[in-house]
């Protein structure tokens, strides 16, 4: 009898120890970009910051889950989410057919366009020019599709150096990143001109990418987006990082 009692006590103890762990909120693995201000970057304190990072935290807060953010270059994002390494990617992904075939998309959370940043007189598609774009981006894909001479870089943050060092004649990048690049002091003297490229492949709705094996998470994220857009959190973050409304 004492043996049975002690076993029962041990069982209860094990349950008591395991329950808090089991009952605690689940953790989602979230992919973010590391050097893509103002959407996602590492701040002066060494912490991940930016609009997308804060939106990811807000979504996790609404879903009552803990998020574990991992920074990576854009090139790896779709592959990693498609492989199930991450539950979702808090990365502004243009909704393209190629991506949609591999991962799930959340509902669009804003609409973006692409900006051509170049020296004066350097026009999109001109022969012989070198166009920089982030590997894995819609802009890179567009440039490749049009047979442009591409300089691929892993992060948006590398564009100023490319331009000042004349390793690229132009850059093609998303609207929000262009805002930060435009403010970069090192390029102010270059007299760069900007052109908004109104091409369907380069503008449109932007979504988060979600593990293709987890449609329930997509529904949860969509509801969470509705929630933070209704309660004002989304707009506050928008005001914090960008001069105008993204949506």
């Amino acid at each position: 009898m004492p043996g049975i009692r002690s076993q029962a006590c041990l069982l209860l103890l094990a349950l008591g120890l395991s329950l808090p762990v089991g009952a605690s909120e689940r953790t989602l693995r979230v992919a973010v970009l590391s050097k893509s201000p103002p959407m996602s970057f590492v701040d002066a304190a060494g912490k991940l910051a930016g609009f997308n990072v804060r939106v990811a935290h807000a979504l996790c807060d609404v879903m009552s889950v803990r998020c574990e953010l991992t920074a990576m270059p854009l090139e790896r994002v779709v592959d990693a989410v498609a492989a199930g390494e991450f539950d979702f990617a808090a990365v502004s992904l243009l909704d393209t057919a190629e991506r949609r075939s591999r991962i799930l998309f959340s509902k669009p959370y804003y609409r973006s366009s692409s900006i051509w940043f170049a020296r004066p007189g350097v026009e999109p598609g001109a022969a012989g020019i070198r166009v920089a774009a982030v590997t894995g981006s819609a802009q890179s894909r567009y440039a490749r599709a049009h047979g442009w001479n591409i300089v691929n870089v892993p992060h948006h943050a590398e564009f100023p150096a490319l331009l000042t060092e004349r390793k690229a004649d132009a850059v093609l990048l998303p609207m929000a990143s262009a805002l930060t690049l435009r403010q970069e002091p090192s390029i102010q003297s270059l007299g760069l001109v900007t052109t908004v490229i109104q091409r369907p492949e380069l503008s449109g709705e932007v979504c988060f990418g979600i593990d293709p094996q987890n449609p329930e998470l997509r529904d949860q994220i969509n509801k969470a987006f509705d929630r933070i857009k209704r309660d004002g959190r989304f707009d506050r973050l928008n005001s914090e990082y960008l001069p105008f409304r993204l949506q």
């Binding site: 804003y110 805002l179 908004v196």
Partner: peptide, 22 residues
């Protein structure tokens, strides 16, 4: 001039923003 250029850039972004064009 940089600030004015920056402002004009934002104007051009806004003028071509899909949300505004809608």
């Amino acid at each position: 001039p940089v600030a004015r250029q920056q402002a004009l850039f934002i104007v051009s972004l806004l003028a071509s923003h899909p949300a505004v064009l809608a």
